[in-house]
Structures are given as structure tokens and as C-alpha cells.
Computed example of a mutant assay.
Amino acid sequence: MSQFPDDGEDLFKQQVLAKVDEMEAADPAPTGQGGQGGEEPPQPCFPNYIEWVTHWLAPTYARHVDDDVTSNAWCPWYLKHPEATSTFEAMWRAWEHYRLDGKTGISVWWRDHCHPHMTRLMDPAGPFKFCSVKGHFINGQLKPLPLASPGAVLSSPAFTEAGAVSTTTTGRTTHVGRLFARLTGR
């Protein structure tokens, strides 16, 4: 029996796992950069963040979630949320690192990684806002953040009056940095 609420999602899971395997094969771990003396780095406990979320995080980080997302929002189809997948991958990588510290590593991971990230992910206004335990985006859909075109921003009076007039790759960092400093007073 599938651990996922909709067996039809197994194909999606297989496609995602295949993509993860493809990415890992294309970017092998560097050799000789492990611990002292050129040792190989330790093997991860879990091969990827999906396995880690499924077999470690979800069972360990137990919370009450339901259709009333006023306290904890969750989407069983989290793989369809780019912010969640990126966050879970970062959490998994940090967990794999900190688990090797036999003293305070996992405590540091909980404090600095898990609790802040999960609080943001499960926030009712977070990435799972329109989802419920019954479905993905059943109450609406989040849209990407709205952006003005770079050309409109670069040619706006506020931008040019602040002294940030360069649109070249080499000059942009300096001018945009000056603009940021002038606008924020930093």
C-alpha cells in the first residue's frame, strides 16, 4: 500500500525520484574532500530528501493537521511545491551534516533548521495556504511573486535619480548596491 494519499501520485513520485537520481549522477560527490587525511566523506543515511521526508521527518515531526489550516497548514503533495521541496532538500542536507556530530549536532539542527523552516512551511499563509490534507490547491492556487520587468525598474525615475543608472553586468552590482544603500539608509 502506498504511503501517499493518492496512488495515482506514485507516477509523479517515480518521475521525481528519477530526476533526483539523474541530477545526482550528473553531479557526483567530490572525492578526497572528506575528513582528515583524504578520507572519503561518510555516506548519507538517506539517498535523497524525498526518502528522508518520508521515512524520517514525517514520522518524527508529528503534528496535528486537518482541513482547518488556521494552525498548521500541510499538503501531502508537497513535491508539487517548489518552496517546500527546496526547503526540505536544504533541511535534509543539514541533517546529514549535523547527525555526524555526536555531541550537540542534532540539537543544533532542530533549533537552527527544523523548527524555523517547518514553522514557515506550515504557516497558514505559507506555501501550503490553499492546500489541505485532502488535496493540493483545493481552495485556490498561489501565484508567483509579481515582478516589474527589469527594464521598467532600471528606467524608472526613482532608480535613475538615486544614481543607479548602469545596466551593464559589470556596473550593475556597484550601482544597485548604491541604490539599495540610499533607499534603505544603510
Rank of each mutant, 00 (worst) to 15 (best):
D6A: 14
S155T: 14
P150Y: 02
G102C: 07
G185Y: 02
D101Q: 15
L79D: 01
H97M: 09
E96K: 00
F159T: 13
M122A: 10
G126S: 11
P42C: 07
M118P: 02
T119M: 05
G102N: 13
T168A: 11
L147I: 03
S166P: 02
A162C: 14
V176L: 15
M122Y: 04
V165E: 07
P42L: 12
P150S: 08
G140T: 11
C45Q: 13
R63H: 10
R111T: 11
A18T: 09
G32Y: 06
P28E: 02
S107A: 11
E40L: 07
P124G: 08
R93G: 03
K129M: 11
S107R: 11
Q3D: 05
C75N: 09
H55P: 01
P44W: 01
D10Y: 09
G38I: 04
T70K: 14
D6G: 03
K80N: 08
K80G: 03
E40D: 13
P76Q: 15
P157C: 02
F12Q: 07
E96H: 03
P41C: 06
D112W: 13
F128Y: 10
R172V: 07
S156W: 04
V165T: 14
R99W: 05
G126A: 08
P47S: 14
G185I: 01
V69P: 00
Q15P: 00
Q36T: 06
V108F: 03
T60S: 15
T168F: 10
V165N: 08
T70R: 15
K80H: 09
D101L: 11
G171Y: 10
H136D: 10
R99T: 03
L100E: 13
Q43M: 11
P59F: 02
S155K: 10
F4R: 12
L154Q: 06
E39L: 13
V153F: 05
R99F: 04
R172D: 08
V20D: 01
K13D: 06
P144F: 03
E51Y: 00
H115R: 15
E83I: 05
T160Q: 07
P76R: 09
T184A: 07
L183K: 10
G8C: 06
F128N: 01
L121C: 04
Q43S: 14
T167D: 12
D68A: 12
L17Y: 01
K103E: 10
T85E: 02
E24K: 13
Q141V: 12
D123C: 08
D112T: 13
P144V: 08
A62P: 00
E9M: 12
E161P: 00
P41S: 12
S2L: 04
T60A: 13
Q33L: 13
P127H: 06
D101N: 15
H117P: 02
A29S: 07
D123Y: 09
H64F: 12
S149F: 03
E39V: 08
F4C: 05
D66W: 11
W109L: 01
S132A: 13
Y49K: 04
A164E: 01
K143Y: 05
T119S: 12
V69A: 02
G171Q: 10
T54A: 05
V20I: 15
N139H: 14
V176M: 11
Y78D: 01
C114L: 15
K103M: 04
T167M: 08
G34K: 14
P144A: 15
G171S: 06
C114R: 11
L11S: 12
R63M: 14
E9T: 09
N48K: 05
H113G: 01
A162P: 06
V165A: 04
R99N: 06
W74F: 15
F12A: 12
T85S: 10
